[in-house]
C-alpha cells in the first residue's frame, strides 16, 4: 500500500492503494467515480479513457504510481470545460448513445481531438477515435456529433 495524491477534476484526492492498481480502479473503487468504464482492461476498447495532463489516456493500463502530479480529468468533470460541454451537448442533440457504456470514453476521445483539431476531417475522426469500440455501432452518429460540436464551438456557442 502506498499513498498517492491525485488531482481529479481539479479536486485534490488522496488514496492508499497498491502501486500497481490501474488508475481506472482508483477512480471507480476508491474515489467512487464510476463514469469511467471498464471494458477490456487492455486498452483495446477505450471505455476507460480519461485525460491525464490533457492527453486522452486509457486509465485501465496506467498504474496509479505512474500518474505522478499530472492532473486527471474524467467524464464527470469534462463538462466544466467549454469543449467538453459542447461535445456532451452535441452527443445529446445528435442522439448518439445507445447502451451508452462506451460513450464516456468516446466523449473523452472526441474532446481531445477537438481541442487540438478544431475542424477535424473524416480522417482525423477515424484516426483519433480509431481505438474506441462502440459495440452497439453508433459510429455514424459519433462522426456527426463531433462535426456538430466543432461547428458549435466555431460559432462560439460554447464559449
Amino acid at each position: 500500500m502506498e499513498t498517492y495524491k491525485l488531482t481529479v477534476n481539479g479536486q485534490p484526492k488522496e488514496v492508499a492503494v497498491d502501486p500497481g492498481t490501474p488508475l481506472l480502479w482508483v477512480l471507480r473503487e476508491e474515489l467512487k467515480m464510476t463514469g469511467t468504464k471498464y471494458g477490456c482492461g487492455i486498452a483495446a476498447c477505450g471505455a476507460c479513457t480519461v485525460h491525464v495532463a490533457g492527453i486522452a489516456t486509457r486509465s485501465c493500463v496506467v498504474p496509479v504510481s505512474l500518474v505522478g502530479d499530472r492532473p486527471v480529468v474524467t467524464i464527470e468533470g469534462i463538462g466544466q470545460d467549454p469543449v467538453g460541454r459542447a461535445v456532451q451537448d452535441a452527443w445529446v442533440s445528435e442522439d448518439v448513445v445507445q447502451c451508452g457504456y462506451c460513450q464516456s470514453g468516446q466523449i473523452m476521445g472526441a474532446v481531445a481531438l477537438l481541442k487540438s483539431t478544431p475542424k477535424p476531417t473524416d480522417t482525423n475522426i477515424e484516426e483519433s477515435m480509431g481505438g474506441n469500440i462502440c459495440r452497439c455501432g453508433t459510429y455514424v452518429r459519433i462522426r456527426q456529433a463531433i462535426k456538430s460540436a466543432s461547428q458549435q464551438l466555431k460559432s462560439g456557442g460554447a464559449s
Binding site: 486498452a43 492527453i55 493500463v61
Partner: peptide, 23 residues
C-alpha cells in the same frame, strides 16, 4: 500518434508490468 490516440494514451514514462504495457 494523434490526439485521442497518442502513444502516451497508453505508454507512460515507465513500464507498467502490472498491465503489460511498456513505457
Amino acid at each position: 500518434g494523434v490526439p485521442g490516440l497518442n502513444c502516451t494514451t497508453c505508454h507512460q514514462g515507465a513500464n507498467a508490468d502490472n498491465t503489460g504495457v511498456p513505457g
